[in-house]
Design a binder for these strands. Structure first.
Length: 260
DNA sequence: ATGACCTAACTTTTAGGA
């Protein structure tokens, strides 16, 4: 069972590399963020023709999340429970069956950026994270294989950013932000990448500006958080950074995990 | 180096991203 997450920065601009990725990496489930289109404009037919079912929560211009899966997508929840008044499309959750080993519950999450931190964008980011913590705590009671996948807009630690000092005051790296990410982990989730390696410099995002990719000025902000039942079945984790050097790249690359 | 990008939109500038 292969589950991946990718902030595509406009699904319509990314359609060709997305179809390539579905064919080459062949994830069973792919969570997408930053669709930047309404549901009616989502390239549903092209993705269904590639062999995937589709569940979306779109929005004009900004945000937007989706779950793609080879198997049927069931019990879809659109919007983060407990944060229902949010006008921004940042959360979709569903259940996908494994061929032989029960089901996985999967969420595709696009947490707010939160910059600049001296504006109301930062308390909005923290409020989203607190609602996510509350909802995740409830989900753990199901004792299911659960993957909370997405762009958290959180740099968890010093090894997850090319220049920690330069990012000290940023909304992605402030202590209040990292503390809430840690609270989420302390509920009982496993940061999938950190379950397989302690290596620094494993990034999922490189800004389009300033030659960030060429200089490897990256951030690790896309994460797969695993319930105990998912963590017990984790086989491997990979970051598909090659896509950042390919044609029409997103500024994020996919992160994926394989499960038994 | 004070530089450098990309996307969507009631587009020819602006807002948002991170």
């Amino acid at each position: 069972m292969r589950i991946a997450s990718w902030n595509v920065n406009s699904v319509r601009q990314r359609l060709a590399p997305l179809l390539d990725y579905l064919r080459e990496a062949a994830p069973d489930v792919l969570c997408l963020q930053e669709l930047k289109c309404e549901d009616a404009a989502f390239p549903r037919v092209e993705i269904e023709d590639a062999g995937y079912n589709v569940a979306t929560l779109g929005q004009k211009t900004f945000n937007g999340v989706a779950i793609l899966a080879k198997r049927p997508i069931e019990d879809v929840t659109r919007g983060l429970p407990g944060f229902e008044n949010d006008p921004q499309a940042r959360y979709i959750e569903a259940v996908v069956a494994h061929e032989t080993r029960g089901v996985f519950r999967v969420a595709s999450i696009y947490a707010p950026n939160g910059n600049p931190p001296d504006t109301d964008k930062y308390p909005y980011k923290l409020a989203f994270m607190e609602a996510l913590i509350a909802h995740a705590q409830g989900l753990l009671r199901f004792e299911e294989a659960l993957v909370l996948a997405g762009d958290y807009n959180v740099i968890p630690g010093l090894g997850d950013v090319y220049d920690p000092q330069a990012w000290a005051g940023d909304a992605l790296f402030r202590p209040e932000t990292r503390a809430r990410f840690q609270t989420l982990l302390h509920l009982g989730f496993t940061d999938a990448l950190r379950a397989v390696t302690d290596a620094p410099g494993l990034y999922t995002f490189w800004d389009y500006q300033s030659g960030a990719w060429q200089k490897n000025h990256g951030l690790r902000i896309d994460h797969l958080l695993l319930s105990p039942q998912a963590a017990d079945r984790l086989l491997s984790v990979a970051i598909d950074k090659g896509l950042r050097a390919g044609p029409k790249p997103s500024d994020h690359v996919p992160i994926r995990a394989d499960f038994s």
